[in-house]
Design a protein around this nucleic acid. Structure first.
Lengths: 208, 208
DNA sequence: TGACAAGGCACACATTTGTGTGGTATAGAT
DNA sequence: ATCTATACCACACAAATGTGTGCCTTGTCA
């Protein structure tokens, strides 16, 4: 017959060549765009589009990629091979550890973490300086991702604009009937001066 | 002449129509793939590819998008309109606030934060349970992003596999000449039993 | 009133891209 | 000996996609 069917038995395990193709696809999708068939061939030294298409068939059959028919650059990664997604392997029970390693529970999508379904103009980030929020686990150097003009409620951590035209990250509190700002560090007193809530803290990121 | 040049003066500010086109492009790039010209036209109700191309010209001229010539789906966002990038507007001086709002210092690339230049198989995430690391600003529910088999050094926070086949997040310490694990919470004693370092903590993410 | 920007359209054409058909060669398994 | 998987190539064809040329209407501004 012909070489259309590269591999129909070993469901899932890839040969070195097949892995090379998959890795190239992952790389390209991670960088910018899914490659075209011809781009894959060119990059990996295949002279025929048929060769590449055969590899794609295998990768699809083994569950590593998906394809949108008749769409240019229509290659997608399946969840198992997704780039830019970090597998959540388990839970760290920090006090009394208790979880088996290597059980993927799901994925964290890098983008979703920040933006979710938010409009792209509604989110920005601030780098935290100072230690007034250490009590809430927010340290100097952390990146605070803020959602603009949200429905900030009592006890939310917010970025607030003070009269002095400065921005600060504090917890919104209404213990006294009227809203004021509270640090999460006993060394810093509550702020009762005028302020405007710029946005609400939705994510904290710390790089080591 | 002809309608090729939609807008050559107002550098940068977009008309509502132009913004609609840009937003559609952002949405599509954010979702999966940059759209083709015809996909844009279809989605926004334009009957001519020329119309869309004219809009693209304007958006390029005004600096909101770039294009790769003769490449299908070759539309890219420029930094200012980038989706998935969070502008770092400033620094929060948490103790003594001190930063003017609305001065973009740069961008945080969602993907870079985690993966950087790492291979996609080297990184995974764990959800933190328990409070043994509160002293290091790591709280229950945080997502700990771990880089596998790294060069973990003294004082690094690592994910370690204990003899009990459980994983825990602790600080690597060698105060006693030999490595052991330390919690960042006085309630938890150091761990001197056998362990294997699985990986090193590179990022902490907390969603509110 | 005439230039010009914004906001459109039609359609031809070239290129890119995906798909289909048919090959070749090697190696291991039955 | 035959079958199958891996690993390739060549080429034709069609569909998707990008590009080029020309034209129209409306509103504003000088």
């Amino acid at each position: 017959m012909c070489g259309i069917d590269k591999n129909m038995h070993n469901s899932q395990y890839l040969t070195p060549q097949q892995e090379k193709v998959l890795n190239f696809i992952r790389q390209r999708i991670g960088e910018r765009l899914p490659p075209t068939i011809r781009e894959i061939g060119e990059a990996l030294g295949f002279k025929s589009t048929g060769t590449v298409r055969d590899y794609l068939k295998v990768l699809i059959q083994k569950g590593w990629v998906k394809k949108m028919d008749n769409k240019s650059r229509g290659i997608e990664l399946t969840e198992r091979s997704a780039f830019g997604k970090i597998p959540i392997i388990g839970t760290i029970m920090a006090g009394k550890p208790n979880l088996a390693y290597e059980e993927i529970q799901g994925y964290v999508d890098a983008d979703d973490l920040f933006l979710g379904r938010l409009g792209f103009n509604d989110v920005f980030a601030l780098r935290v300086k100072g230690d007034s929020m250490v009590g809430a686990g927010i340290l100097e150097g952390d990146i605070a991702v803020i959602k603009k003009r949200p429905d900030a409620a009592n006890n939310d951590i917010v970025a607030a604009l003070l009269d002095s035209n400065e921005v600060t990250l504090k917890r919104l509190s209404s213990r006294s009937g009227k809203f004021h700002l509270e640090a999460a560090n006993p060394d810093y007193p509550p702020i009762f001066e005028e302020f405007k809530v710029i946005g609400k803290l939705i994510t904290v990121i710390r790089k080591y």
